[in-house]
Design a protein around this nucleic acid. Structure first.
Length: 653
DNA sequence: CTGGGGACGGGGCCC
DNA sequence: TGGGCCCCGTCCCCA
C-alpha cells in the first residue's frame, strides 16, 4: 500500500517494524475492511460509471496519491469509467483494504492488465508492482496501455473479488456478463460498500448489464433513495436490450453518449426501479404495481440481510471497536426487533472514566453510584460529574456539552447526541407526558383541534407525535446528520431527501421532456409548464402563474414599495383578516394576505351566513383546513365577530 | 443595466 | 416514513 509518501515514512516504518503486537496491522486492516463492507463510518462515495462504492477517505488517501487529491475536497468523487470500470475498481478497492489481489487462476492476464492500467491511473504504486509481478510470472507482461487489454473494464475469469457483485443477490437479475457462468457469486456476501444509482451528471450508463436496476440495489445498500415516478406508465420500460441510444436529456447537454446498454439512461427512473430484468420483455411483463422486494420470494433471506444492512448504514452508530462487528450487527438486529441483547448489557462506548455512566439505561442503573435509577438523576449525575475539562479526555476531544462525555470522533459524538436527545425527550416525557391542552377557562376551538402545545413556543398540534417532531426543532443539536457532508437535520426524511441530492437521484421523470426531479411535488409543478395551467392568479393585477412560489414573489412586488416598505395594494379589510389568519395559522402575514386577497370578493356580503359558506369553503381549500376550522378562523376575524351559528352551519358540508 | 418573470434546487416542517 | 406544502434562494431569459 502507498504509505511511502509520508514524509515521516522512515520513522514510521521503524515503528511498524518494531510493532510489539505483530498482528496489529492485520487486525486493523480487517476491522477497516469489515467496516467498509458495512458502510460503517464511511465518509466518501466513489462513483464509477453507475456504481457507487463507499470507503474511508483516510484509507484511500493513504493508498493512492490520485484518490488522495480527490477526497481532500469532496465526499463524492467521480472516476473516469473509461479509465477504470466498476468491476476493476471493486478489485482495486478490495486490494486497498486487504493487500490481496484475489485468488488468481492461470487465465487472469487480461484482468491483471486491466487492474494494472487502472492502478497506474489511480497511482497505486504497490498494486502496479504487484500486477507487473504477476504478469511477469506468467511471462505476459509488456508495457500495458490502458486500452491494450481486451479484458480491461471487465472482471476477468479466474479472479474472485472479495467485494461481491450486488445484483447477484436477485435471481431474476441478469447475471453480469463479465462474470463467467462458472464463477460463483456469493449473494450472501453482498454488502453495502457498493451501490448503484442514477447519477445526475448523466453518466448513469448501464454497460453490459453490470449495473442492475437501481431499485434492485439501492435499498440493499443503506438508503432507499430511489422513488418511483408515479405518473409514468410502466409499459414504457425500456425492455429491449438492443434499444439504441437515446438523445441527451434536455437541459443536460453534457450527457455523455450512451454506450451499448441493457438499460437506457433516460428511461424513467421508475423503469429502473421496478425490479424487473430487462433481458426479455416478453418473459417479464411489467406489472402495474411492481414491488421488487416483495415479489422476490426466493430471496427472502436476502431481503432480511439487506434490511439489516440498510439499518446498519442508516443508524448513526455508537462505536465500540472492541465489539465484534458481527455481534454488534446481531445486537442491532435484536434491537430492531425490540429484544434485549447481550451486547446491550455492555457499555457500548469506551468509557473515559471508570464510573462513566453509560447511555444504556440498564447499565447505568447497574453501575450508577447514586443508586437512583431515575433518568433525571442520571442526567443530574452527568452534569455533576462531567464538567468540561479538555485535558481529562485524552483523545476523546469531541465532547457532548450537556453531559460532558468525550468521544474520539464527531461521528461518535453525533451518534451519542442523538441518543442523548432521545433520552432527554424520553425523560421529559416520562415526567411531563404531552397532555392535551385542557384549560377550560381559556379554551378556544383551536385548542380543541390542536390540543398538544409546545412548551418552548406557542405552536400547538393535533397529536403528540407531531408535537414530538416539532420539539426537535428546538434542540440545540439536530439529530440526523448527513453521512456524506455532515449537515444535520431535524427530521430523518429531510436528511434522506438531502442524501438524494448528493447522489443525484431524481426519481420523478417528466413524460413530456424527460426532465427529472427529486420530488413528486416538483414534477407536479413542472407539468404545469407543459399543460399551460396557471392556477395561481394575482388578485391585484390578474397575473397568472404556474407556480405558487412565483405568485408569492410576484406579490412582493405589490406589497413592497421601491423603498422596501410595505405597500397597500390590498383592501384594508384583507389586511386585518390576514393578520388574524397569520397569527392563527402560523403563516406570514404577507402570505395570509395574499391568499385572503383571493377571497376578498366574498366579503361583499358578510352579514348572511350563507354568503360566508363559499368563503369558508374556499379558505378551507386554500389552507387545507376543515371547513369547521376555516369557519372558526373567519368568525374570529375582526370583521365578522364570533358567531356560533356560522360554525354550526359549516360543521356539516 | 435593471427589473420582472419563469423555472428550479434545497431546507423546514406539518400531516 | 413519506407526501405535501411553504419559504428562501438562484439562475436564466427577456423587455
Amino acid at each position: 500500500m502507498g504509505f511511502r509518501e509520508d514524509p515521516q515514512g522512515g520513522q514510521l516504518n521503524t515503528m511498524l517494524d518494531a510493532m510489539e503486537v505483530p498482528s496489529h496491522s492485520r487486525q486493523l486492516l480487517l476491522q477497516l475492511n469489515s467496516q467498509r463492507t458495512k458502510g460503517f463510518l464511511c465518509d466518501v462515495i466513489i462513483v464509477v460509471q453507475n456504481a457507487l462504492f463507499r470507503a474511508h477517505k483516510n484509507i484511500l488517501a493513504a493508498s493512492s496519491v490520485y484518490l488522495k487529491s480527490l477526497v481532500v475536497h469532496d465526499n463524492l468523487i467521480n472516476l473516469d469509467h473509461e479509465m477504470v470500470s466498476p468491476s476493476i475498481f471493486r478489485i482495486i478497492l478490495d486490494f486497498i483494504y486487504t493487500g490481496r489481489l484475489g485468488d488468481a487462476e492461470p487465465a487472469s492476464e487480461p484482468l491483471f492488465g486491466a487492474v494494472l492500467a487502472a492502478a497506474s491511473y489511480l497511482q497505486i504504486a504497490d498494486l502496479v508492482s504487484l500486477c507487473k509481478k504477476k504478469l511477469k510470472r506468467n511471462g505476459k507482461y509488456c508495457h500495458v496501455r490502458t486500452s491494450g487489454y481486451p479484458g480491461f473494464g471487465s472482471l476477468g475469469r479466474g479472479l474472485r473479488a472479495t467485494t461481491p457483485v450486488i445484483q447477484s443477490c436477485f435471481n431474476s437479475t441478469p447475471r453480469p456478463v463479465d462474470i463467467p457462468p462458472g464463477e460463483p457469486v456469493n449473494p450472501l456476501n453482498t454488502h453495502c460498500g457498493e451501490l448503484y444509482a442514477s447519477i445526475a451528471q448523466g453518466n448513469q450508463l448501464h454497460q453490459h448489464g453490470l449495473c442492475p436496476p437501481e431499485r434492485h440495489c439501492s435499498p440493499l445498500c443503506g438508503l432507499d433513495l430511489s422513488k418511483k415516478s408515479p405518473n409514468r406508465p410502466s409499459n414504457q420500460h425500456h425492455s429491449d436490450a438492443t434499444e439504441s441510444r437515446e438523445p441527451p436529456m434536455p437541459g443536460r447537454p453534457d450527457s455523455p453518449p450512451v454506450s451499448a446498454s441493457l438499460l437506457t439512461n433516460n428511461g424513467s427512473y421508475k423503469d429502473q426501479t421496478h425490479g424487473y430484468p430487462k433481458l426479455d420483455s416478453s418473459s417479464t411483463p411489467p406489472a402495474p404495481h411492481p414491488e421488487p422486494f416483495r415479489n422476490s420470494v426466493s430471496n427472502s433471506h436476502l431481503r432480511t440481510d439487506s434490511r439489516d444492512l440498510m439499518f446498519d448504514w442508516m443508524k448513526p452508530e455508537p462505536l465500540g471497536n472492541y465489539v465484534d462487528e458481527s455481534d454488534r450487527e446481531k445486537d442491532m438486529d435484536r434491537e430492531e426487533k425490540g429484544e434485549s441483547s447481550p451486547l446491550s448489557q455492555q457499555p457500548r462506548y469506551p468509557s473515559i472514566e471508570s464510573n462513566e455512566p453509560d447511555d444504556d439505561k440498564s447499565t447505568s442503573e447497574e453501575t450508577g453510584s447514586s443508586g437512583d435509577p431515575s433518568p433525571s438523576s442520571n442526567l443530574e449525575r452527568y452534569h455533576c460529574n462531567h464538567l468540561y475539562d479538555p485535558e481529562s479526555y485524552g483523545d476523546n476531544l469531541y465532547v457532548c456539552i450537556p453531559c460532558g462525555k468525550g468521544f474520539p470522533s464527531s461521528e461518535q459524538l453525533n451518534a451519542h447526541v442523538e441518543a442523548h436527545n432521545e433520552e432527554e425527550l424520553y425523560h421529559k416525557d416520562s415526567m411531563e407526558p404531552p397532555v392535551p391542552f385542557l384549560d377550560k377557562t381559556s379554551q378556544s376551538l383551536g385548542d380543541i383541534i390542536r390540543p398538544y402545545r409546545c412548551s418552548s413556543c406557542e405552536k400547538s398540534y393535533k397529536d403528540p407525535a407531531t408535537l414530538r417532531q416539532h420539539e426537535k426543532t428546538h434542540w440545540l443539536t439536530r439529530p440526523y446528520p448527513c453521512s456524506i457532508c455532515g449537515k444535520k437535520f431535524t427530521q430523518r426524511g429531510t436528511m434522506t431527501r438531502h442524501m438524494r441530492s448528493h447522489l443525484g437521484l431524481k426519481p420523478f421523470a417528466c413524460d413530456a421532456c424527460g426532465m427529472r426531479f427529486t420530488r413528486q411535488y416538483r414534477l407536479t409543478e413542472h407539468m404545469r409548464i407543459h399543460s399551460g395551467e396557471k392556477p395561481y392568479e394575482c388578485q391585484v393585477c390578474g397575473g397568472k402563474f404556474a407556480q405558487q412560489r412565483n405568485l408569492i414573489s410576484h406579490m412582493k412586488m405589490h406589497t413592497t414599495g421601491p423603498d422596501g416598505k410595505p405597500k397597500l395594494d390590498f383592501p384594508d379589510s384583507v389586511y386585518a383578516m390576514a393578520k388574524f389568519t397569520a397569527d392563527h395559522l402560523g403563516l406570514k402575514q404577507e402570505k395570509a394576505a395574499e391568499i385572503l386577497s383571493q377571497t376578498s370578493h366574498f366579503l361583499n356580503d358578510p352579514k348572511t351566513i350563507e354568503s360566508l359558506y363559499p368563503l369558508a369553503k374556499f379558505t378551507a381549500e386554500q389552507f387545507g383546513l376543515t371547513q369547521e376550522k376555516a369557519a372558526e378562523v373567519l368568525t374570529q376575524s375582526q370583521h365578522l365577530g364570533s358567531d356560533s351559528r356560522i360554525i354550526e352551519r359549516f360543521s356539516s358540508p
